[in-house]
């Protein structure tokens, strides 16, 4: 069976090296087909079966463009999420699917695609950088990663998170809930890229995409060694700063 992975708008959604998530997935799934859908093209998921839809980090104007392209397909995205299609939205891509994005410095307040009922506040002079470690129900080992972002997502406790942080902040500094998880939709603000930094998460995703096959992790020796080294360090409380703690 050939899997189809759709990368949305790679000409604008390509910041912070995060598209390596898909390079890595393609190495793990050598027979998968990767479609790169341009901004002025209709997404493949609209009219055909796609196994994984990926959207990576965007600039602020890129978010606005992505919302404009995805909003007409809101009901289709909703349907695909409900029926178990896999989605991976990293960094600020997830924010496009919320109810609105407010950016006071750039003077806009725009509706998002409206799949999820959370809002995003963007502070152009308040860039947050921090580490994150926490648990994800699909894996027994902790997820690790980094945040470097202008935006904070509202707490919205009714929306299930991707992970619960044990160290580092979640959707914002007042919550341990990080990202969004609904069926096979995974949204996370973590960069790293998250699949390369968390080989067990990639294994979970591979198993979920192809349940009939034992997951084959590419470059596993390096990926696992890098993960183990980072985890050891992240488990040391001295490595965490005050601003990386959840408050309130």
């Amino acid at each position: 069976m050939t899997l189809t992975i759709e990368m949305l708008f790679p000409e604008i959604a390509n910041l912070h090296g995060d598209n390596a998530n898909i390079d890595y997935l393609a190495r793990c799934l050598p027979d998968a087909r990767v479609i790169r859908t341009g901004l002025n093209e209709t997404p493949a998921f609209v009219s055909r079966k796609v196994d994984l839809v990926y959207l990576g980090p965007l600039t602020e104007s890129g978010q606005i463009r992505a919302i404009a392209r995805l909003a007409p397909h809101k009901s289709r995205i909703d349907e695909l999420i409900q029926t178990g299609t896999h989605f991976l939205f990293t960094h600020n891509a997830m924010e496009c699917l919320g109810s609105r994005i407010v950016n006071a410095e750039m003077k806009y307040d725009i509706p998002g695609v409206g799949i999820f009922d959370f809002s995003t506040e963007v502070g152009m002079f308040e860039r947050y950088t921090g580490k994150v470690m926490g648990s994800f129900e699909g894996t027994s080992q902790p997820i690790v990663g980094y945040k470097s972002q202008f935006s904070m997502v509202s707490s919205s406790p009714e929306i299930p998170g991707f992970m619960a942080t044990s160290r580092g902040i979640g959707r914002n500094p007042t919550t341990h809930v990080e990202g969004v998880r609904r069926e096979n939709f995974v949204g996370t603000s973590l960069i790293g890229p998250v699949l390369l930094m968390n080989p067990h998460l990639t294994e979970w995703l591979l198993s979920s995409l192809v349940p009939s096959r034992e997951p084959q992790l590419a470059l596993s020796e390096f990926a696992v060694a890098a993960y183990d080294a980072r985890l050891r360090e992240f488990q040391d409380t001295k490595m965490w700063s005050e601003f990386e703690r959840v408050t309130g």
Partner: peptide, 15 residues
Amino acid sequence: DRFDGVENTAWTYDA
């Protein structure tokens, strides 16, 4: 980077 501020190694995938 690990001690002066906060680490973020994502740049290696931007290179």
